[in-house]
Structures are given as C-alpha cells and as structure tokens.
Amino acid sequence: MRLGTVRIMLSDFYRCDCAPRTMKRLSGLFFVVQKITLFLVFYILPVKEVIVTMRKDNYRDLQKYRETRKKQRKRYYNKTSYLYEGRRWTPEEDDMVMAHISSDTVLSERLHRSVQAIQRRRWMLKKKKMACETVCYANNRLWTSEEDDMIAAHTVPDAVLSDQIQRSIRAIQLRRWSLKKAGREIKDGRRHWTETEDALVFAHDITDTQLSEKIHRSTNAIRQRRSLLKKKAGEKNIHQGRQLT
C-alpha cells in the first residue's frame, strides 16, 4: 500500500460523519484505561516499591537516575522549606517526631516545621539515644591501680565493669590493650570448663536447654563442648587399644 493511498483513506475517514463519534469513543476508552491503571498502581500495589523499581529499571544510565532522584527530593523538600520560621524544639515536639505515627508531611502541618527539619531532628534524637545507651563518662581522671587490677583480672563483663568504675566500655578496652602492650598479664576473661560441667555435658541426661539454665552457658557452647569431649574420648580409646595390642 502506497503512502498516497493511506492519506486518501484517512481523509475519507475524517470527512465521514462517524469519525467524531469514533474518536470520542476511543478517547473515552483511553480515559477509562488510564483511571484503572492509576487505581491499581496507587491503591492495590505497594506504591513506593512499584514506582521506584519501575523508574530505576527504565533508566539505562544510573548517574542520570541519581540526578533525577536528587531533583525530585529537592522539589519535595522545597515545598515546606520556606514556610515556617526557625525556633527551638520542645519536648512535646520531640516525642511526636520520635513516635512517627503520621507521615512527615502531616507532621509538618501540625508542628509548623519543614519536612527536612523534622527528618534531621529525628536523626539527631536517634543518634543521641544511641550515645546514651552506650554510657560514656566524660571525666578525664587518671587510672588507679585498683582499676588496672580489675581490668587485668577480667572477671566480669566490660558492661558490668563500666558501671562499677564509672568509665566507658571503649575506655576500658583501650586501657586493657595499653596494659597488655606494657607487659601486664591480662586474662582472657573466659570461663573455663570444670570437671563437673564436663560430666554433665557428656552424660546428656537432660536437654541442652535445661542444662544451659543449670550451668549458665549457651546451648551452642554446650553442643561444641560435648563434641570436643566425644572426640577426646574416642582418641583416648583408640590410644588405649593400641597399647593393649
């Protein structure tokens, strides 16, 4: 079919009375399909995963994808960046930020703060909470001989020792390393197995969970110890058999 023939057929179609009705039906059908697709994407399927995955897969150049994503984030943050004036945070606002019950956009309207300010405040509060959980004592005092003895003995965990001598866990670890480097004898801090514990482990009269509660050791440590004891017992039997022969 030649191009001229196609043009004549199209011109005849548009001159026909049924052309406007057909175009209206096609446009209406396209509108319905578009609405159904949007409904499926935004209400049925997980919005964030679908949109991000499709968008990233459609980009051949990842650098271009990152630039586009950066521009989109900039537009998102600029919606609330210059609406509110800066002021100090209150404890009630901090509780709402850390609770994170509603989205940051809704929280921005309630607190009259920008979305970026809310996200930065949440990050700072989480960082502060983590720092408080790992207790740090900011008192630069000299180490005493009693503290050095307790660190070298290593009879209790560092977390317990930190509360006892009022020093951070990191400071205790660094002090133990410096004492070891200076030639001080440092114990490894591990509990050595006793003959009674070995007998209970090797007998295997009760379950490992019950034995773990009884001797205060993990079930994994008990299984490893039993395997080692059986291996030693087997080697001992083999050695005795060779001596008899």
Rank of each mutant, 00 (worst) to 15 (best):
I238M: 13
N78G: 09
K24V: 07
G183Y: 03
G241K: 13
R69A: 06
L83E: 07
R87S: 03
L3I: 08
V201N: 03
Y14D: 03
Y82T: 11
I36D: 11
S81V: 07
I44S: 09
Q243L: 06
H239V: 09
A99E: 07
T5W: 11
A171C: 05
Q34Y: 13
R175G: 01
A203D: 05
H112P: 00
E92C: 04
E213Q: 11
K128M: 15
V50S: 12
K56L: 15
I101G: 03
F30C: 09
R223I: 15
S168F: 01
H100V: 02
E185Y: 09
Q72K: 01
E85H: 04
Q63W: 02
I151Y: 00
H154A: 08
Q224A: 13
G86K: 08
M23L: 13
W143R: 04
S114C: 02
G234E: 14
L111Y: 02
D57T: 07
E85L: 05
D158E: 06
E147G: 10
L244F: 08
E197V: 01
R113F: 01
A199V: 02
T68C: 07
E147H: 09
T105C: 06
A138Q: 12
L26W: 07
S27M: 13
F13T: 02
S103R: 04
P20A: 04
T245E: 10
Y82K: 14
H100G: 07
S108E: 00
K24I: 06
R184T: 11
Y14E: 10
R225G: 07
S218K: 12
V115C: 03
Y43H: 11
Y76P: 03
A19N: 02
N78R: 09
L174K: 12
Q34W: 12
I36H: 13
E93W: 00
M1I: 03
M96S: 06
H216C: 15
S168C: 01
C136V: 11
L211T: 00
R226V: 13
R113C: 00
E147P: 07
W193K: 02
A233T: 09
R87G: 00
F13D: 06
R223K: 11
S212K: 02
W193L: 08
F42I: 04
E85C: 03
G28T: 08
A221C: 14
R110S: 01
D148Q: 10
P20Q: 04
F13P: 01
I101K: 08
D149Q: 09
F13C: 05
L142T: 15
L211K: 00
S218N: 14
D57S: 14
V115H: 00
N140A: 12
V115T: 08
Q34C: 10
R190Y: 08
L26S: 12
S162G: 04
T196I: 14
W143F: 06
I36L: 13
S227G: 11
K35D: 15
L10T: 06
K187T: 12
T134R: 15
L10E: 10
M150N: 03
Y59D: 07
N78L: 05
Q72I: 01
D188G: 13
L38N: 09
Y76Q: 07
D198I: 02
S11P: 00
K70D: 11
S27H: 11
C132P: 07
L29D: 14
S27R: 10
Q116Y: 07
R21P: 04
R190H: 10
I8G: 06
T207R: 00
T144N: 04
M23P: 05
